[in-house]
Each structure stands twice: as structure tokens, then as C-alpha cells.
Design a protein around this nucleic acid. Sequence first.
DNA 1: CGGCAGATTGACGTGCATCAACGTCTGTGG
DNA 2: CCACAGACGTTGATGCACGTCAATCTGCCG
Lengths: 246, 246
Amino acid sequence: MTNATLPTPRLDALKVACSACNLRELCLPVGLSDDEMQSLDDMVSTRRIVKRGDSLFHAGEPFAALYAVRTGFFKTVISASDGREQVTGFQMAGELIGLDGISTDKHSCDAIALEDSQVCLIPYSQLESLSREFTLLQHQFHKIMSREIVRDHGVMLLLGSMRAEERLAAFLLNLTQRLQARGFSASALVLRMTREEIGSYLGLKLETVSRTFSKFQEEGILEVKQRDIRILDQDALQRVVNGAHC
Amino acid sequence: MTNATLPTPRLDALKVACSACNLRELCLPVGLSDDEMQSLDDMVSTRRIVKRGDSLFHAGEPFAALYAVRTGFFKTVISASDGREQVTGFQMAGELIGLDGISTDKHSCDAIALEDSQVCLIPYSQLESLSREFTLLQHQFHKIMSREIVRDHGVMLLLGSMRAEERLAAFLLNLTQRLQARGFSASALVLRMTREEIGSYLGLKLETVSRTFSKFQEEGILEVKQRDIRILDQDALQRVVNGAHC
DNA sequence: CGGCAGATTGACGTGCATCAACGTCTGTGG
DNA sequence: CCACAGACGTTGATGCACGTCAATCTGCCG
């Protein structure tokens, strides 16, 4: 929130080697040897600060690098020619942004920071050459891309066949699961996105999202105070995700 | 469903080298040198026949290979624990099936042939080692994975924000576009899937799909005879995809 | 020719969108 | 430090697109 007026933030000050990063078990370096880790450290030498509301990249811009979220929170959004928008994902620490750009050498979505964030810059051509050298890195990278495909298919299931309550419940469980993997509570979370952004992601209008939050609260499943959410009955939430709508 | 009892069909008889395949400009070998193409030919030495209704693989089965469709037509389907199903894609000649399996070494969907088909088997470990050797192959493979991600994001937009007519119009335009790239007519097509499968893919019920086909026919946009579709007014279809719903 | 899966069409119900009013939080400047 | 503006969130009333249920039709295959 501060230091935006400074001419160029001291990026070196941010420098944290992959090998010393507490996200290394969630991010690209999973399972690498010391040797490989060293090469990765050399490649991922640049970090970038993105302030809340600012973009990491926009659709149409040339693709040159992937970004690993170090701290903060992002959304990715695609826009149709008629102005319709769709939030395609929310990314938190340890997750990669920009994989869509590989296909055409141009980004196909906007990536917007939902809070002040830091990302590690992974120059793509270097990643390709390094993954020709290191089998494990190559394999891990492929797994990450594949995981994104599997995740997208899950969202398609959600959008194609779930009802509003099921969608929101699935969304919350997914969020808490990912937060828990990062050492946060499984039962309390602060939403970084608006109702409208949640709605866009889930194929619902913001009013429906708001009403569904209220409904969950009435039923004693959640405690909702604006963006502060406390999960009171995780099992009930899970039951909602499966078709228990009566 | 059948042919499981047969010892193993004569696969050699099907053998067509990538270098001689008329799909090479749509498939994995795009842009490879003679040298690289030769190595690819060696790797992709096995073909498999899949009869209509049979599966290429099921969710949960160990992942070992990707499949390139040589002839025929497939759908991929994911199933939720509560029995809900979602068609995540339709694959035609030159397209790759199985990318989802990389993430966990298990397939996460079922791949079902919608007509008698042939696929080329691409052993995944060999693909990884070969793409360490050949930069262009590596790059092309990454592009294919990324393209799948971009495609999925497009489907999310469709499912999240389009109305029934818009979805079906977008679906038909996408199909004809891909068929056209394979040398087929841009205005006539035979659907290989049922209304229910289209509906599952588009997040609609089969009755809605049927009604929407009828509506397009009444409006003179399509001629619909069961699965035979003729596109009479491509521009109108395009206008429907953008928000022209009046 | 009979049986069956798939497709069409109609009547009706409902989940979510839409439109609208009001409440609440945040941060910015006087 | 307070006041005010604007963004965000909640809630209610109403409408409609699509789902549901059901009957009938079509084409295919044994």
C-alpha cells in the first residue's frame, strides 16, 4: 500500500531463492535435487511487486514468462468480444499464472492482483531449456499444466451441472483446502474477492451469491460477516456439494 | 464393450508413420525436422482400434500414454461421486486425449469412442525423454497442453455466462471450424453425439438442446434432420454467439 | 416386423436473473 | 478526527429461461 511512489522498488531486497522459499513444496521446485534447485534459483532471479487492482498482464500482450505467486492473491479473467467476462481462476501463493500464454505466445487472459502481491518471474524460454536438462523439473512442470486442465474440468462440472448452493459450497471447500495446505485455518477465511467476482467464477449473479451466503448462515453452516467467513459445519458443506438439497 | 476377448487385433496392419500421416500438420509433429520426425515415428509405433461405445480408458486407470485420434470421434467425461457426469470435450482426428492423466499418473476421465475409431499410442515416458532431446517437439507439446487450457477457459465462459441459444451456436461454430481445418465442409455436418451428450457438454438438458435446434431451424439458420445439420446462415449463427438475442 | 434408443414437442414448475431500495464498510480530504 | 463519497453487500418483489415430466414420433437393427 505504500512504496508505490518510489521510482523502482528495490527488487533485490525481495530476493528469496527457491531453495529457501517456504513454498517450494507447493510450487515448481517440488522434489528437485540440490543441483537442480541451484539452476532454478539462477533462472528465477526476478521478483515483481503488483499492487492491489494492478494487472500482472493483460490479454493480447506478448507472453514471455510464467509467474509464481509468492505472496498475495490474483484472479484471471477472460473477456469475450461482446464484453462478457469470466473469472477463470483465483491464484494464491505457490500457484503458477500464465500457462495460457504458451499456446499462442500471447496471454489470453488478464491477471489482476486482488491484494498487494509479489510474484516470481519465470522466463519461459529458460524454463524450457532447463527442463530439457532436468527430468524432474520437466516432469513437475508437465504435472502443473495437467493439474490446471483437471481443475478446469472440475469447474466445467460445477458450471454445467451444479445448483447455486452446490457451487458456492464447492468453492468454499476448495478455497479452504488450498489455504489449509498453506498452513492456514480450515475453518476461517477472509475472501479476497467481491461477490461479483465469486459470481463470475461460479456462473452466478452477485445477488445470488449474497443470498446463498445468507442462506448458509441461517442454516448454521457458516458465519458470514462481509468477507470474513467462518465455517461452522464443514460436513454440512460437503453434503451440499453432493446433491443433498432437501 | 466387445473385442476384449480377442487376443489382440493385428495392429501392424494399421501402421502409418507420423511422417506419412495426413494429420501431421494438426497433431504433435507440427514443424518437426526429418530427423525429429523419424524419432517420433519410432515412438508412436502402436495403434489401437476402439469400437463405437468402447472406452479408450476409464477414470482411475493408471496413466501411461497419450492418444492421438487418427480416425473417428471421442468424448471425454468426468463423473462426480454423486453420479453427476460432465462431458468435458469432444475429440476428432489429430487431437490428443489423456493430458489430464499426467497430473496424478491416473486418468481422471473416461474417454469413449462415439464411432469406430483408431488412435495412435504415444507412450508418455518416451514423449518426455524425446522432448528433452528435441526442442521443437517439446515446444509443440507444451503448446498443445496450453491450448487445452485456453479451450477449457472458453468453455467456462460459455457455461458461466451464455444463454442456451448462444451456447449451441458457439458449439456448432466450433465444430464446423475444426471440421473445416480437416478438409470438411463448413456448412454441413453429421453430429456424432446424442442430444444428451451435447447437453452435458453445454450445461443444458437434452430437451433444451432439441428445442434450440428446432428454433434455429424455424428461423432459417439451420436445417436439422436428426443428426444431419446444414448451416444455412453462418453469419446469423455468429450473431447469436455474440449477444444478439432479439 | 417389433423393440428400443434417441429425438421432438407440449404443459407446467422453479431456480436464478433482474430491477430496485437500502445498509455498511473503507479510505480520503477537509 | 470526523464527514462524506463511492464501492460493496444485503434483501425484497417480480419475471423468465430453462428444467421437469410426459406423450409421441422417428429411425435403426436384429
